[in-house]
Structure formats: structure tokens, C-alpha cells
Write a protein that binds this DNA or RNA. Sequence first.
RNA 1: AGGACCAUAGCUCAGUUGGUUAGAGCGCCACGUUGACAUCGUGGAGGUCGGCGGUUCAAAUCCGCCUGGUCCUACCA
Length: 953
Amino acid sequence: MEKTYQPEQIEIRWYERWEADGRFAPSGEGEPFSIMIPPPNVTGSLHMGHAFQDTIMDTLTRWKRMQGRNTLWQVGTDHAGIATQMLVERKVAAEEGKTRHDLGREAFIDKVWEWKHESGDHITRQLRRMGASVDWSRERFTMDEGFYKAVQEVFVCLHEEGLIYRGKRLVNWDPTLHTAISDLEVENRDQQGSFWHFRYPLADGVTTDDGKDYLVVATTRPETLLGDTGVAVNPADPRYASLVGKFIELPLVGRRIPIVADEHADMEKGSGCVKITPAHDFNDYEVGKRQDHMLINVFSKDAAILERAEVYNFKGQPQPDVDPTLPAMYAGLDRFEARKQIVADMDALGLLEQVEAVNNTLPYGDRSGDVIEPLLTDQWFVAVESLAKPAIEAVENGDIQFVPKNYENMYFAWMRDLQDWCISRQLWWGHRIPAWYDAEGNIFVARTEQEAREKHGLGADVTLTQDEDVLDTWFSSGLWTFGTLGWPEKTPELETFHPSSVLVTGFDIIFFWVARMIMLTLKFTDEVPFKTVYVHGLVRDAQGQKMSKSKGNVIDPIDLIDGIEIETLVEKRTGNMMQPQKAKAIAKATRQEFDGGIEAHGTDALRFTFLSQATTGRDIKFDMSRLDGYRNFCNKLWNASRYVLMNAEGEDCGAEFDNDKSSEVELSLADRWIISQLQKTEAQVTKAMEEYRFDHASQALYEFVWNEYCDWYLELSKPVLWDAEANDAAKRGTRRTLVRVLEAILRLAHPMMPYISEEIWQRVAPMAGTFKGTNDSIMVQPWPQAEQAKVDEQATLDIEWLKGVIIAVRNIRAEMNIVPGKPLDVMLAKGRPEDQSRLESNRLFLSKLAKLESVTWLANPDDAPLCATQLVGEMEVLVPMADLIDKDVELKRLVKEIDKQDKLIGGIEKKLGNEGFLAKAPEAVVEKERGKLKDFQAARKLLLEQHEKIQAL
RNA sequence: AGGACCAUAGCUCAGUUGGUUAGAGCGCCACGUUGACAUCGUGGAGGUCGGCGGUUCAAAUCCGCCUGGUCCUACCA
């Protein structure tokens, strides 16, 4: 073995080997366990969030596989409608100077497929680097033929049931992308805005009670004035009671609009009068509906002012009787231009009463960054109410459980206030909506045009055109758990692996995806999509900032694995930016944070870091120093293995002797102890994994490997192995323990650190007798199970004693500035009989580990010469110091120690002096305190004696 | 405005049903390298558990209020 751990030499090799050996496919045996990967964007690349998520999924998958479950980790990607289309549009623009419209729909779609083929395996390659044990043979893409079939089936069925409908409704419209987006794709940002107060003249010579001939309405969006259909006042507002039923003459437009009473108007706010614009505001839409107003749309798809308004009733029917005339001077003006102009014109008319500065929030499209406009358009919707009910129940009754549990509240809150879901998108890349129209605009929904004709008896003479729009990507990913398994066919995979066992996902897409999956899956399979939802937090940068390309603080997980030069990193972060003006600052910050670039750490160290930070659903600040630390841990494990191999390879490791009582194999105290500790660790790690506490699982492993196996057991093995006089059975016992415990460690580690564990296991397993032929792999070994019978409490106590004495001697060395290598003569005094017997049976270990010349039991403590002392329980560890002792230093140390004991004693005495405590605390607690008091007092007494002795010098 | 979550060592975080001498890693200080590992070893310093109040014999842990932070939902006519 190499002297240091070098991940790059082993990782790719092992992944290729596993894949070639078909290790990732379900075994076909055992109780099924399945995880469906949240499909990443097919043309995307792996970011830290993916890497984190994939680590968790792979750890669960490998763990369950080792537990003998029939394990499927289903892999695949989604087509990411808007994101991919935008990317290809930009690419086409850059390369050919053309828009998608120049190319036409078909040619453009070809371009997207080309791009998919070109870049589509990037993310899957990265998944492989992460060690993901996904079943590549079952890889799915949402735009695959088979998956499309599932999408059509669902659409048609829902439509037949009346749960999908088409309607003219207000949607969040992205004027840049020219498509509807869901409210989840809208980002609300705070900003400084203006609040314009306008005077709306009363028609027909009417005046207010206080004699004014106008009402004041305020708005943050003056340009919508053109679409006003009325002014609302609160029905209980005495100020305007006399005006209800009267009219306003809408300025600039000249339209007569009614004053209506509606509870939407808040008497406390502003003047108490609200302008109503049903076609441009979600609240006003509701008011307009109640008041039987028209919908007057004044915006084009670009959010520019129309020449003539479009007028509809609330059924979406055009209203030719309403005069659609709009002022000519605004026609074609962009909404923000129009706003300026309208404000200026109102001012000129003396109708601008005041402009107030306000803090408000504005909706932005998370893709385009443009301000979202509520716009009246024809869209397809899913009526979610009847779907939501069972979806809520599934979580309420525990069929689906969230981990951590508090996310269930977030889910309920959203589900109980659900709007119908707009599923059509005005894009080209996606699942085309399976609906056809005849010349009159009649709608025929079917799986194919052929079916549409047959179903509705349409002759060949009827021209049908398919709906131009595509479906929201989340509509198709909502079918992911069962669509990937072959639905609507009744496949054996569907039978076996659905419902899936766990969904691992970020909280940010609970609404987007999780909720919709639950609704659609229950509807179409009568099963939940998954039994558990493990929700993890966001991976943030070291400062706690969200990682984003525009901030220039993203880290490519692959760069943490392979390392990256600083110049390459700067280039990567500042190249191809949307906002190039930020490049300089980003370069500077990057150079500051990653001075010498990033070193290679390997996949296992990265995975272990993620796991150790995976606490209960909170965000994680990615910490480079922890990554360093876990790479060191890999190295530690590597070197411990090196030691084991050096001492065991080619030697008799007793693999064939299974009976520990056999005279052929003799186990030392240390052997029994480490075996005992291993059982506890196995139990701990398993429990932690069951509870999704990967931080606890990784920590339990780390502590056992480093602080017990390496720090103590390996050291304790040396005296046995290097003792020329030790018998063969003892050596065999120690070698066997070294090897078997290491082999178990590797199996415990494997789900978390697949590569290093496999690499070492290949060398260790043959000696441990667990290797079954040349093609064997740790991936299919049984998960370690704690055996209660091997827990040896006596051995634990004995080793604790031994460690205590060794540490006491080390302490004395440090206190007295004695070099670590100098052999010492040590005496043990006071204490109990078992202390003496422990000394006799551990003399060898003690001498070697504490580097002692001699160690003797002092029957009469008064015989002790002048010594430095330490306490182990009630026993004193004495190192004769003769004239070497520094009186002042030692006195000071003792005083400090005595003070410490005094404080402890004081605390307990106070407790025990409290009658309430004695009366009400459980007896066991009281007893424990009494015991502690006794110990502390005994320690204090010894320290005091020692102090007096030295004082007397 | 409503809600959720968070606040523990210089940093990143654990701390299960109240009873621990409040822990880990990293960092820091001192010492140390012939026999697995300097990606290391040994020893050490460092915390009034955000603040105030309450419940209790006992609070980092339970309750209330406050402060600071993150996020979500709503509103902003």
C-alpha cells in the first residue's frame, strides 16, 4: 500500500468495475427498497446541493443493499422546459444570430435534442464520480417515448373526469419569456416604489358628502388605470354610502365606470376607495367577478399597451358591445413607459393629488428576472381540490412521513390553501398538450389526433390543429415515481418497487414537486409515491450565502474531489457571466478565500463531510476545514489498514478458528475490549441510519476508528505482536481481532465511503475469511450486526483503568517537562484490591504504552518518596521526582486541582442540603450525587496530602 | 402582518424522554519523528449555552416575552 491515501488512483477504477459487474441493479431477492432520484436537469451540471442529496441517497441505498434488501435506486433526468429552452435559445443566438422563431418550431426542437445529446451525459458522468450506485440500465428521461405516454394518459384521464379544464384566467405572465409561470416560479423582491394618489372625477355632477367632485384612489401601477371597470368602497363606509351606484368618468379613457360597494375596500386604508381592474390584478379579478364587471385587458403579450382593449366577461366570452377604445397616445408603449406618461398626463390634468414613497414587493420571474404581470390568457388548469384531499390525508394518517416532522406543517399549510394549477406553458420544449382544435375552436382531448377523430366522430374533412402549448415540467415530474417504472403498463417493476421507500429532497421543492407527486400518484395508482420524505437543507457557502452563479460563489463538487488550480477556479467563476461587471469582485473574493486553489480531497472525504453536516433539515454552511479533516480521516483509516496488513499479511490470522475459547486462539483484554466496542459502534451507526441522523452515524464511526481502534487498540496490539515471548495463540488472537474488526469497520463505512472501503476490503477480507472468490465486492457483504454476547463490560472497565493510568503518566510527563521517550519508574498506591490485580495482568501493556522502566505496587503509601502524582479513581499514580521537581509549579497545579474539587464539592453539597431535592428527586439521582460527593472528597483529600508533602520540602 | 426554524468554545456543529464535571472536529499554545500515519502523536488553554422572566427539588433542554438572523406565506388597492 502507498504510504498516504491517494483517492484518485482508486475511485474511478472501482466505479467502473462495479458498473461492469452489474452491482447496481436490484438483486431480485429480499424485501424491496427503492429510491427515485429527484430528476436533475438533463443538460445541467451537478452542484453542491445535488452532491449532498446524492450522497444521502447513495448512503441509504448501499446500506439497504448490504442489509439484503432488493434495492433499486432509479436514476433519470428531466427536460427542464424553460431552463433548457432558454439555454438553447441563447446558444443559437450566439452561434447563428437567430431566434427560435427564425428557425421555426421543428428545427428549434431538433437543436434542443442535439444539445441534449451533446451535454446530456455531463451530469450522469458527475453522478458516477460521486459514487452513486444507481441502476443505469433503467435510466429514464421525462421526454422519453414511454414517459410521454404516461403524461398523455394522465392528461386525458384528468380531462375526462373534468379535473383538467381550459379557461381564460389571470395567470402570472412572464413578458420576456412569453409564457405563463406558476406562482412558485415567482420571486417576490422588496423594493422602493411609488404610490400615486389620483383624483377620479365623479360623473353626472355628483359630489361627495364633503362637497368634492372627485374620489381619490391610489395605485402602484397607474398604467392599469386604462383597464379600470369601477371604484369600490366599503359597504359600511358612511363617507361614500350616497355614492354607491353613481359613476366615475375614468380619466384619459372617458369610460363611465360604476362606484360599487364591496368588502374588499378597506375603510382604514388611504381614502377608502379602490380602483378595480379585474384583468390586471388578482384581487380585483375576484371583486370584478362579484360585481359582475367586465374583464378589460389593456396589455399585449409583451406587456405593452394595446391599441384597443380586449373585453371579456367572466366566462371568457368576448364582449363586442363594450367600447374597447383606448387613448391612441399610449398604444404600443411598454408598461413602464406608459406608466410615466400616464402619471404625467394625470398631473397635467390636475388629477395627481400626491405621490407617496412606499416599500413594496414586486414579483419577478425566477428565470427571466422580468417583472411578472398578471395577464388574462387562455390556459389549461388542473382542478386540485379533489386531488388535494387524499393527499392531505395520506400525510395526516402517516402513510407518508416527513423527516424532520415539522415539514408536515409546511405541507399542510400549502395544501389547504391550494389554487388551481396552471399547467400550460407557452414554450416549445416539453410535452405537447394532447388537445386539438377545429376551425371553430372546439376542443378535442385525446392521446392522438387519430383517437380524437374516432372519439368525436370527426371526418377527414375536418381540419384539426394541435394545441401549441406544452405542459409544465412539474406536471410530468409529478408522475416520476410510477412513470419511471413503466406505468400505464402493469410492469413487474411497478409491482415490486412502488411505492418507493424514501424521497430525498430539499424543502424548497416540497410545493413544486412533492405535493404534486403525492396528488397525482394517489390519483393514478391508489398508492402513495413514497413512504418517507427526508427533507434536507440547502448547501450554502462558508459565509452562509446561497450559492449562485451570479454571486460567483458556486463550488463544483468535482473540484473538491479532484482539486483545482486557483486560476482555473477564477476563470470558471467569472467566465460566461450574465453580469460581467461583477467579475472583478468575484475574482478578488475567490483569490482571497481559496488562496492556493483547492486541493484534491477525493469523493469519500466529500461524502463524509456532507454526511457529518447532515443534521436535522437545517441548511449547511459548507466548511472546507471539515473537508480537510475528513480527508485526514481517510488517511488515518488507510494507514491503520497499512499497519494491519503489515502485521497480518502472510501470517496466521486464525481465520479458520471460530470458537473464541479454542486453545488455538487466545484473546487479550484489548482484543475483548475492541470487539466489545465494535458491537456498540455497530448498534450506534445502525440506529443513527435508521433515524436518518447521518451526522451521528458518521461521528460514531469516526470516533470508533480514530479514538478507539487507532489510538488505543493498534497501540495495544503492538506489545503482543512484537513480543518475542508471546505465544502463538495470543498472536493469532490479536491478528485475528485486528483483521476482523477492521473488516467490520470497512463494512460499516462502506455506505458512507464506498471507494476507500472497497479498496481496503479487497486486501483485508481474505484474511478475515469473508472473501468469496476473486470477483467479490464489499457492496454485497452483510451489514454488520451488533452481537450482545460480545459486549464485555468487564473488559471495558479494565481498559478504562489502563487508559487512566497511561494518561496519568503522560500528564505527569507533560507537567514536569519530561521528554516522552524517557523511561520512568512508576509506583501505584492506595486504591483497591482490583487495582492491584489489574496492574498485575496489564503490566506489559502499561510499560509499553506509558514507556515505563518499571511499575510497582506500593503496599505502604507512606514509603513513597517525593513524587509527582495523579489520581485514577482512588488510586494514586506516583512518579518519583527526587530533586527534579519544581516545587512552585507543582504546588500551583495542586492548588488549582484542589480548587476545582472544592467547586464540585460545593455544588453537590448545596444540592444535597436542599430538602426539596432530597424529598422529590428520584432516589437514584440522589444516590448518584452522594457517590460523586464521596469521590470528589476523596480526591480532594489526596491532593491536599500531596500538597502538604511538597509544601514541607 | 402571520408562521416556521435558528442563536452552545475563535470557526463549523452535536447535545435523544429536564439530573453530564456541557462535548466533537477544525483553529490556537507547548512539546515530540528509527519500527501504520506530520494528511501524525502527547499535553493544554478556551463556554455566565443570545437577553430577561417563569415552571421545577433541578433548565442548554419545558413555557412566556424581548433581541438578532434565515426562510416561507400574505399584503402593499
